[in-house]
Computed example of a mutant assay.
Amino acid sequence: MKSKLTTTGSRLNPSQRPAICLGMPLYNQTRFLPQALDSLLAQTYGDFNLFVSDDSTEAGPGQIVNSYAAKDQRIVYHRNEYRRGLIDNWRNCFELAGEMDYFAWVGDHDAWHPRWLESMVQILNTCESVVLVYSQNVNIDNNGGILDKKIKPGISTLGMDNTRRPLVVCRQGQGFGNMVYGLVRARALRQAGVFPRVMWPDVILCIKLALIGDIHQVEEKLWFRRRTDRFSMPRQKRALFASYRPWYFKLPWPLVNAWMLTRSPPALAGSETGPQRNLRFNLAAVYFQRWWSKFGGGSWIGSPHEWRRGKATWIRKLKKFRTAVELKSK
């Protein structure tokens, strides 16, 4: 879904340049890390700081980052004292950055076109309604070759009213894992809760940002996203937290996430109007209706979505057994 971008005002002069921070959650990456750092440091818009939060169990990634930091003062390296897990390490990137205007998470194994950051900064500088802007991406393999994989369409909510916008993102949005790597206004990110401690935190974050302002995609392929492994639900669940998991992770995640959408941001607690509260509950209902069919995905039982496509583990085992029986009978 695309909308025409209409900018307001003009580009900021040097004395008004926004404070921009990039956050890199690092975990045991050494092979592609130098290329990622080179790619970021070569951006045409170079007025930013890169905060690296190292959650690795090995010393190699930190040594690589420190070698770059010794040559470029824009890099700030932090080694966690203990394993945080994916969610808290992402949150730590934002906390390390401190006060800023714009923020973006960056992968430790990806690459970016030199104009990636500049293209997004220009939109946030000139379109006040946009709180999150992200570029189109190209999927690449370990050797840098382009993967023949369908890329989910982007979305732009420009021109939508405050009620329709979050509902459209919740009901029709795709590629939330791409959206979350865009450039976001720091104040909006704080209001949305940064990176929620839930299953599928990227989805919940983007929906909450849509409650605050517009989401827009740059119509250029400026991000080269490296697909190193096939997605695995069990691996994703293990990676979210290093040790302790919140008690509510024992409950069905579609229910928990829908509940999260009903909660008001602390900054607005007690000041929301009736229509705003109603919108949150309506949003939670839309979310639950869309995502309930994925509950159980990656487990032995599987989800209704996997059942319909014959991808549940028990269905695959049954097909394999039936094939073996048919071969023996021949």
Rank of each mutant, 00 (worst) to 15 (best):
Met1Thr: 15
Leu5Arg: 15
Ser10Gly: 01
Arg11Phe: 05
Ser15Thr: 10
Gln16Arg: 09
Ala19Glu: 10
Gly23Met: 07
Met24Ser: 08
Leu26Phe: 01
Asn28Ala: 05
Thr30Met: 06
Ala36Cys: 13
Leu37Gln: 07
Ala42Met: 02
Leu50Phe: 04
Asp54Thr: 06
Asp54Asn: 15
Glu58Asn: 09
Gly60Thr: 11
Gln63Thr: 09
Asn66Arg: 14
Tyr68Asn: 08
Ala69Glu: 03
Ala70Leu: 11
Ile75Ala: 09
Arg79Lys: 14
Arg83Tyr: 03
Arg83Glu: 12
Gly85Asn: 04
Asp88Ser: 04
Met100Gly: 14
Asp101Asn: 13
Ala104Arg: 00
Trp105Lys: 01
Trp105Phe: 04
Val106Arg: 03
Asp108Trp: 12
Ala111Tyr: 02
His113Ala: 10
Thr126Ala: 02
Thr126Tyr: 02
Leu132Met: 10
Ser135Phe: 00
Asn139Phe: 15
Asn142Tyr: 02
Lys149Gly: 01
Gly154Lys: 05
Ile155Lys: 03
Leu158Arg: 06
Asn162Glu: 15
Asn162Gln: 14
Pro166Phe: 01
Pro166Val: 01
Val168Pro: 02
Val169Asp: 00
Gln174Ile: 03
Asn178Pro: 00
Leu183Asp: 01
Arg185Phe: 08
Arg190Cys: 04
Gln191Gly: 00
Ala192Val: 09
Gly193Ser: 05
Pro201Asn: 05
Val203Pro: 00
Ile204Ala: 08
Ile204Gly: 13
Cys206His: 08
Leu209Pro: 10
Ile212Ser: 06
Asp214Pro: 10
Ile215Ala: 09
Ile215Arg: 03
Lys221Leu: 07
Leu222Trp: 04
Arg226Ser: 06
Thr228Glu: 11
Pro234Lys: 09
Arg238Val: 04
Ala239Gly: 12
Phe241Glu: 04
Ala242Asn: 08
Tyr244Ile: 12
Arg245Pro: 09
Trp247Gln: 09
Phe249Gln: 13
Lys250Gln: 10
Pro252Gly: 11
Val256Gln: 05
Met260Ser: 11
Ala267Asp: 13
Gly270Glu: 11
Thr273Ser: 14
Asn278Leu: 08
Gln289Met: 10
Trp291Gly: 03
Phe295Pro: 00
Gly296Ile: 01
Gly298Trp: 14
Gly302Ser: 12
Pro304Ala: 14
Gly310His: 08
Ile315Asn: 05
Arg316Pro: 04
Lys317Tyr: 03
Lys317Gly: 05
Phe321Thr: 15
Arg322Leu: 12
Arg322Asn: 10
Thr323His: 08
Ala324Tyr: 06
Ser329Trp: 07
